[in-house]
């Protein structure tokens, strides 16, 4: 059996995604029937986080590039949307393409520089670019500066206030997440994903095979940035608030945690990771306001005791059940 880092082994295949999507599609129905309306909002938030984690998983899990500035793209998407809403141009048809364009452009420009580096320097430079976005948000004095900006409302669609309905918004978020999941699933099996994966393990060899590794990585980086920008668009609409904190480096750390706890490179693991993170946050902050005092050591223990996240642990467990049968 392969190690936890290998993608597209049988277990990260089609069925878990289908089950997951069906489950998520039914949440509003169940919530309405059982009159647990807050589930809808909570699950929406979880799916937005999952989308952000998924976008990071594309470059971190498949590409092997540890970006520590990923929250910047969320912040850019959120701020683009927020500013457009405040300026009265918040229609989805404007705000969504603009959010994607802005975060994609930032990913392109920073990617050209960051992807020239490797290893430790890549981590640091993405962190620094993330900080740049954070400080840029702070400098937006006209839009709240340090304190953030409370929005007048959500984006409209053709001038209609459809997204203000939380069930409509839920399914919009769901569609975005499911769409991105399927897209990445297809991409990771296509040549694009194979080259990216190959470059993770041996970039020199991929180059000698004639692939332009830099270009493929840059494409992945831009795609990943745009996906996170999409998450930012959804986040701004969901919370009706934008703040520099969306782009803070701790958020990037949280995203890395989600990706790792779900199993690096496993696409549905990113969703599981986001869910785990939210449950931990909810559960621990119910115990004490100083929940990070528990959360921090949990992360440390998790890293020290396991390799490859929950999915890796499940995988090894399953290997045991399989009696070491190799497939």
């Amino acid at each position: 059996m392969s190690g936890p880092l290998v993608l597209s082994s049988k277990r990260s295949s089609f069925w878990p995604v289908v089950v997951l999507c069906l489950g998520l599609a039914l949440v509003p129905v169940v919530a309405v029937l059982t009159k647990q309306g807050h589930w809808i909002s909570l699950t929406t938030q979880m799916m937005i986080l999952a989308l952000a984690a998924l976008s990071l998983d594309l470059i971190l899990g498949i590409g092997g590039l540890l970006s520590f500035g990923h929250a910047a793209f969320i912040g850019l998407g959120a701020y683009t949307t927020g500013i457009l809403i405040q300026e009265g141009k918040g229609d989805v048809l404007v705000a969504l393409p603009m959010s994607l364009a802005v975060s994609g452009l930032f990913a392109f420009l920073t990617g050209i520089i960051a992807l020239r580096t490797r290893g430790v320097v890549f981590i640091m430079i993405t962190l620094a670019f993330g900080q740049m976005a954070y400080f840029a948000a702070q400098a937006l004095y006209a839009y709240g500066g340090d304190d953030g900006l409370t929005l007048d409302g959500r984006s409209t669609l053709f001038g209609l206030k459809l997204l203000s309905n939380k069930i409509v918004f839920y399914y919009l978020t769901f569609a975005c997440l499911a769409g991105c999941l399927l897209l990445l699933q297809r991409l990771s099996r296509a040549r694009f994903g194979r080259v990216l994966l190959g470059a993770r393990d041996n970039a020199v060899r991929m180059e000698s095979l004639g692939y332009d590794v830099f270009r493929v990585r840059l494409m992945a980086y831009v795609l990943s940035g745009m996906m996170a920008g999409l998450a930012g668009f959804l986040l701004a609409n969901h919370t009706e608030f934008v703040s520099p904190a969306y782009a803070a480096w701790q958020r990037s750390g949280d995203l890395i945690f989600m990706v790792i706890i779900g199993g690096v490179g496993s696409l549905w693991g990113a969703v599981g990771g986001a869910l785990t993170y939210l449950l931990l946050e909810e559960g621990l902050s119910g115990l004490t306001e100083h929940w990070k005092v528990i959360f921090g050591p949990l992360i440390i223990l998790f890293v020290l005791l396991t390799h490859g996240g929950i999915e890796g642990v499940v995988g090894r467990f399953r290997d045991l059940l399989d009696g070491g049968r190799h497939d």
Partner: peptide
Amino acid sequence: MFRHLYARSHLDQVLATFGLILFLNQGVK
């Protein structure tokens, strides 16, 4: 803690020391 991380990947190092930051920032508070 750190001794057990030297041989690990950068990813593990980043995540574990990130956990330590969360702990200590909140701890001093």
